[in-house]
Design a protein around this nucleic acid. Structure first.
Lengths: 205, 205, 205, 205
DNA sequence: CATGAATGAGTGTTCATTCAT
DNA sequence: GATGAATGAACACTCATTCAT
């Protein structure tokens, strides 16, 4: 029993190793320019080894996106559930996201590309990230709660308002990133400003 | 002299032909998947001919971005100059952008990628679009005018507020695109809503 | 008009160049061990050039088999048609084959592999050579004529007798090949012997 | 001593296990497409274990051919020795072969490939099967006995006539295989026909 | 001895770029 | 200038073989 568990754990460790390396390389070069050898080398494995853990380059890329987003989404959901007030929920969600992307800057770059790719390419053979869709759905649900609790205007679709929320905080992250590395202020400091802009912008009255 | 001018004009015409073809192909397939042959064929030229007008693939891509953005930026600037009121200036700018991207949907896809790429890739060999920077600067200057005329809060940097303005209207364009083709409503109809959200969100008081 | 024809002719010349190179390499190393680079080098072209003329390795291989067999089959059919007597037809067919394979020894090696592959592999994704099937059908038709003219026994299927005819002369070619290069005797000298064995073996009475 | 013997016996048992698995896999996929992992899995061993018994893939392949052919050859030789008449010897040899290949259809596919490969490839790094050569020599010796007993014509080399004998019965086996699985008739039923064709074809007078 | 994860050389194929016509 | 055939570097992926456990 212990043997099997150790094996499984080892396997998971290696997958994580590789995903971390892939994160750095994909962030640095983008999907196409990154080669499997780059990633293998970064992870200190041979080329073939990467293929023991991920069927192909696409699979590696999507596993990375899914895994990271899954983590973020789950932890946000847990914390959100602890409060009832819509504004509190939104604040917690926002803080979580800012904190997460500050700690996962490489992933943020990938996340941004991925988001754009899905929106943009007409002929997209890449299987769309299901977790990215869940993530968007989740934000929409938050907005709906806000509308029910009458702190968010309901003369526009929750989907549109969610897009606005999302794009405001993403734009603030980008802005923060562009100022690096001189910037030592915490990204989470922007939380208050973002929430203020958002709630004033789309709030009721 | 006239001969030279005609030659120049001819040359410009061919460049525009190729750029239009490139626009369609890049929008359809994305930068990497689009091949120079695809583009040459779409433009009804031979592969080699494209290289007579653009040094390489990157150059073609950036010429396309620059040219289109230049057009947009110039026409916006002219119209903006006609009014003095900051809110009017912003409204005109917004309307112009919405109208432009509705008419240049292929370009919007490219623009979005480009914006992300510049923000995102660390190791970016592509020379950054100078017009994209000008474009951003221009929006910042609008915000500054708003701040001077005291319709926009000045407790935050104009750069940040410009990012917010930009990201809100881009997100609304994306939302509009995703609903295609069922959507027949004009994109410009969203102008009022966007301006409202923006000015409430970042307006003074 | 002339330009087009020349172009077509050029293209055909290059295809033939490559097929000839492929013939040598495939005969030398077999399908799997032969690399596209080997073939390109042998044909004195760059790797990519081969792909301008043949979609992929399989296609190159099959074009080679089809083209050569087509040539053989057509010329045999023409000569066969000139005589009525079944024995004469069979003799002509035999002579033609011996002469052809003596002149196309590299192709004979490939032909033999191909024949075996088709017979042998259960899981064969390679599209079967349609000309090889036609070739077999043609020999069967010869046997049937022999049966009608009562020079070949008809207590067994024409298909089986065709197999015997085919395998006898192929075995004699192999035998002749194995003795190379000391052997200077013509392969066609064996014609009489082969025909004698075959007709005695399967003849009536 | 007993320990060593048991060890040896065990080792032989494992080799046979692996060879049986290899037989199935090679017959199914052919030499190149079959992977060592396929074979190991089929034999229910780990990949590395196969290498404890066979130096490399080539060696495994040839051991398989050698072992099977050895079995066939030995049993034929024993039965042949029981009779003196050349025709009887040939009949027994034929029956044995038909029976063997009917029972070892996977091996027949491999055998056929192997025979072709040896005849065909110029640049053959595979060590030629010595037993295959013995097998051929044995058939030649049978033909020579036939020639001595004056039932086989001696105006041609025994080697050539042996090739004919061999190729006729192989072609009949192939024909029988191609008709599978509808065919339930025993392959050995063809014995009489084959012998008849052969002896008429190459018999004296 | 047995295992099977790790290795990395090797191959088919694509495509930006060049250059002879 | 225009052409498009030719080039060859580059990359994803496979698999025979090894070796630490």
């Amino acid at each position: 029993m212990i043997t099997l568990t150790r094996k499984e754990r080892d396997r998971q460790l290696r997958k994580t190793d590789i995903i971390k390396a892939a994160e750095r390389i994909f962030a640095l070069k983008g999907f196409h320019a990154a080669t499997m050898q780059d990633i293998a080398k970064e992870a200190q494995y041979a080329t073939g080894t990467v293929y023991l853990y991920f069927r192909d380059k696409d699979t590696l890329y999507f596993s990375l996106v899914e895994e990271k987003l899954q983590d973020l989404l789950e932890s946000v959901k847990i914390d959100i559930a602890k409060v009832l007030d819509a504004e509190d929920k939104i604040r917690i969600c926002l803080d979580h996201n800012l904190d997460f992307f500050e700690k996962n800057q490489d992933f943020f770059r990938i996340f941004l590309s991925e988001r754009t790719k899905i929106q943009v390419q007409k002929e997209n053979k890449l299987y769309k990230s299901s977790v990215l869709l869940q993530y968007k759905e989740f934000i929409v649900s938050l907005v709906k709660i806000g509308q029910q609790q009458k702190i968010i205007r309901n003369d526009y679709e929750a989907g549109q308002i969610a897009e606005i929320f999302f794009s405001i905080f993403v734009s603030m992250i980008i802005d923060w990133f562009m100022k690096e590395p001189k910037n030592s202020a915490r990204l989470t400091n922007l939380s208050g400003f973002i929430l203020d802009v958002f709630l004033r912008g789309v709030g009721r009255k």
